[in-house]
């Protein structure tokens, strides 16, 4: 059974957990897994367009983080360090997928049941169209869109997480808006 995030947050800080793992208490790494898997599940799912791909990416990122844990310069900021590992993994996966068949799995939208109202049908169609349009953005545009409009982070917070400048992030976002507007021309009214 999974522990809740709240239960884990009441435990030792990330720095103490990281130091315990480095000292040989391997099972303590599970505290970090429980603490951060849900936080980054949605980010990876939106970036990769598939829950299954996201699950693989987050798992790989955790294992890679364990293997390189002695390179974590600031154990108290394990979450920020882990985010960069996951981000690299997701971008690599996007590059790999770009050479294959485009990913167009619908991660959240579902078709309305028969008998639904016109408004419900329209909402479902818009939701599906938006999901597919997001998948057509570049990985960089999509990431800043997800962090800004799904995770509700400010540009300053996104800059702190990714190491990018606020100006570069805004430029990506604004090009993403233009691309979405073109792709969703029928719904943009």
């Amino acid at each position: 059974m999974r522990h809740t995030d709240d239960a884990d947050r009441n435990g030792p800080g990330d720095g103490a957990v990281v130091r315990a793992v480095l000292a040989g208490e391997v099972d303590q790494f599970g505290v970090l897994v429980r603490r951060y898997r849900d936080r980054y599940a949605r980010y990876a799912t939106h970036l990769l367009g598939s829950v299954e791909l996201a699950e693989d990416a987050v798992q790989d990122a955790f294992v890679r983080a364990y293997e390189r844990l002695d390179q974590c310069r600031d154990p108290d900021n394990f979450a920020g360090w882990f985010f960069l590992i996951l981000r690299n993994r997701c971008f690599a996966e996007r590059r790999r997928l770009a050479r294959q068949v485009p990913v167009l799995e619908d991660i959240g939208a579902s078709l309305p049941a028969s008998g639904s109202t016109d408004a419900a049908v329209e909402r479902a169609e818009l939701r599906s169209a938006v999901q597919q349009a997001l998948l057509a953005l570049t990985a960089e545009q999509r990431e800043v869109f997800v962090l800004r409009h799904v995770e509700q982070l400010s540009y300053d917070e996104i800059a702190a997480r990714t190491g990018e400048t606020v100006g570069a992030l805004k430029m990506r976002m604004h090009r993403g808006y233009d691309r979405l507007r073109t792709l969703l021309r029928e719904h943009w009214r």
Binding site: V33, V51, E55, G108
Partner: peptide, 23 residues
């Protein structure tokens, strides 16, 4: 804003065996 409101923001949970596989 109508388009942005249609973006799926529901939380995502992985399968129940995720923690065990990672560990």
């Amino acid at each position: 804003f109508r388009v942005l409101a249609a973006v799926d923001c529901t939380p995502v949970s992985f399968s129940g065996t995720f923690d065990a596989r990672v560990m």
